[in-house]
């Protein structure tokens, strides 16, 4: 698990990635590396229980939640646990394949948006932050981090 940077700047955004594949951590970290304003602190955990504990200890602005987590859990079980932990920020559902019908019901389980893992890049992340984190980051997001 990667820990969030504790001495973040004022305009820093903390994103928590919940994915049981460490390769995804590495790839996500690389995609966010170019952001400086706002600076992004990325926290990575592999299971939902660790994610809940993370929320208890660190302020988190946004969560990217992998649909399937070991053992055999999907967002219909995991997203409510994050909400139960008191997290009120945006939760984005990520998956290698989001074409399943049951993805259509994501708002019912406390998820704000969904996005395929192969669609995630700097531009998508900039748009998502602007859309869901409000004017605080609007100007900062104008610049392409890459």
């Amino acid at each position: 698990m990667s820990e969030a940077n504790s001495d973040k700047p004022t305009s820093m955004v903390t994103i928590l990635l919940v994915d049981d594949d460490q390769s995804e951590h590495l790839l996500f970290e690389r995609k966010l590396a170019g952001f400086s304003n706002p600076a992004i602190a990325l926290g990575c955990v592999e299971d939902i229980d660790t994610a809940v504990r993370f929320l208890e200890n660190e302020p988190v602005d946004m969560i990217f939640l992998d649909n399937r987590l070991t053992p055999r859990m999907d967002f219909r079980e995991t997203a409510p646990k994050l909400r139960d932990a008191g997290f009120t920020g945006p939760i984005g559902l990520i998956s290698s394949d989001i074409t399943g019908d049951y993805f259509q019901s994501f708002p019912d389980f406390g998820v704000d948006f969904r996005i395929g893992k192969d669609e995630i890049d700097a531009q998508a992340i900039t748009f998502i932050m602007s859309e869901f984190l409000g004017k605080r980051f609007e100007n900062s997001c104008d610049d392409d981090p890459n």
């Binding site: 594949d21 790839l27 399937r68 998956s95 290698s96 394949d97 074409t99 893992k117 192969d118």
Partner: peptide, 11 residues
């Protein structure tokens, strides 16, 4: 194929 194979391919 769409999920378990697609994921490692994308990676």
């Amino acid at each position: 194929v769409s999920h378990d194979l697609k994921a490692p391919l994308r990676q």
